[in-house]
Design a protein around this nucleic acid. Structure first.
Lengths: 169, 169
DNA sequence: CACAATTAAGTTGTGCACAACTCAATGACC
DNA sequence: GGTCATTGAGTTGTGCACAACTTAATTGTG
């Protein structure tokens, strides 16, 4: 009942060379490279959820705070460039950070289209408590630093390749 | 104005050995290992969105279809085990697949708590068109097969480690 | 200068992820 | 056999991601 043998009725496969894999296997492989990434990302998210609970931050909010701690007051647009996010995601997120009293927004005087996001005192103070977060995360992975670096490099290459492959982006 | 030099006023760092990295660097490193993963995952998602548009599927819906194509009729619970998702996510998602006419749901007779999800004819037929998806994705990454495999292995290890680190999960 | 194209932020709507919950069916134990 | 804990599906509420849109400011070009 469970293992239904795949019916041979597939699309034409007369054209391609297909070195070692057939159509069948491909559908499985696929369910893994993208899926492995997806799973790992969500697993990370779950861990961050626990670790960041004390700080009252979600993971994406934490990312925005990281940008601000590193670069200081930053226009929304630039935060988006750093994080690969658009205003549709950032506007409400930053609004929540504002309600939480961690950041303030101010429209630029030179260019009134732009809004600068800066840290409040509470936001600045939170950094001290956030410093221990990365260590806890890194410890949880159980990975060597070198391996993390390596993984990082590959992922960057992958992201770049994928971005390049998407038309409009 | 842009590069604010980090003020030295941080938390105590007298205890730990810290081989090569200081607190400062850690906060940056962090913003990358997790973030690299997050970015790659979202980049993948963006590519899938384009590729799957023809099929009228989102990426998570595609994952569910993959499970069904591979295993045939499957209880919701088991789909969740395969995909690392709970009923809170799956119930509405599967309902949308049902509305689209790709799957049907039927309450089990042996155990009336359980709901079996099976493919309709349209759902089965869609497989033929989905077969080309993995190739297009793989091509877009520009990665060698071996490298994909390697990355996959590392990500699985990472996910396992992260899951183990989260208390309740 | 005027006017079209571009740009930045924000809004709206859809779908996913997940916590916390309800409800009904099942299983375990006395 | 009756009671209670557990299990599977589903609902509700919050937040994120992103497409498509609106609005206002800026820039480019005739």
């Amino acid at each position: 009942m469970t293992r239904k043998p795949c019916p041979g009725t597939l699309v034409s496969m007369s054209e391609r060379p297909t070195p070692t894999l057939r159509e069948e296997d491909f559908l499985r492989l696929d369910g893994q490279i993208c899926f492995a990434l997806n799973s790992a990302s969500r697993a990370f998210n779950g861990l961050y959820r626990v670790v960041l609970k004390d700080l009252g931050l979600t993971y994406p909010q934490y990312l925005v705070m990281l940008v601000l701690w590193e670069h200081g007051t930053t226009p929304v647009k630039e935060i988006g460039t750093h994080l690969r996010l658009d205003s549709g995601t950032l506007s409400p997120l930053i609004k929540r950070l504002e309600v939480a009293g961690l950041v303030h927004r101010e429209r630029s005087t030179e260019d009134e289209r732009s809004v600068h996001v800066g840290l409040t005192e509470a936001g600045t103070a939170l950094r001290a408590r956030a410093v221990e977060v990365p260590r806890r995360i890194a410890a949880a992975t159980g990975f060597e630093l070198a391996e993390i670096r390596d993984l990082q490099t590959r992922l960057h290459r992958l992201t770049a390749a994928l971005d390049a492959a998407v038309p409009q982006a």
